[in-house]
Amino acid sequence: MLELRLIQGSLLKKVLEAIKDLVTEANFDCSATGFSLQAMDSSHVALVALLLRSEGFDHYRCDRNLSMGINLNNMSKMLRCAGPEDIITIKGDDGTDTVTFMFESQKQDKISDFEMKLMDIDSEHLGIPDAEYQAIVRMPSAEFARICKDLGSIGDTVVISVTKEGVKFFTRGDVGSANIVCRQNTSVDKPEDSTVIEMNEPVSLTFALRYMNSFTKATTLSEVVTISLSSELPVVVEYKIAEMGYIRFYLAPKIED
């Protein structure tokens, strides 16, 4: 028996919109810890890891660990039928091949049940060890989205370099090149507007902008994005989900052939 009630149902809607273009099918795992997902894109270059902790739900019942194979496009279609203020409850049962999304209006005067078919998905689970990163950049998520969009109109790849001067985003394309530098800037009044750079050593890595632009679909989930870089690891682009958990995107770099 599974019953997860989320007062702020819009969070789930936003999560789906953020990941459905990157990953088409995935297993949602439900355990005492929370509702989670780990899935790679079809070319095994990017990975999304989502965690919505059980404490973040208004009601969380998960009698035993359950994995639900879901077509994210279909789930997104169903969640789009929930109003922006609706409370969403996810209901499932062992041994059934469906999951039900229940939408309740704030005033409880409209209740909708959408039942969706589950599917069997053979998914690979990657072990992602905790790691030390050479540089961690925290910046306004909207600023990062703007940079990725702007650079995406010039080139296909972005070189992200962190030095003590700041973080530099560089691209080159047929029409020319672009270079954007963000310096550390701390805003006491509005910490979410700050750009904070923690650097152990300078690092410079190249990534496909197509993926970065896909990650920025999570911008509505958090005002701040954290970009963790190490020459030994895929970059991690993390959006915290208030009080609940996170959505993390991992992206393998490009290297000179």
Binding site: S43, V45, L126, G127, T206, P234, A252, P253, K254, D257
Partner: peptide
């Protein structure tokens, strides 16, 4: 053109 690495270059299946 630079070579796109995969996640398998870094992470292993658990």
């Amino acid at each position: 053109t630079p070579l796109q690495l995969q996640l398998y270059n870094y992470f292993i299946q658990s």
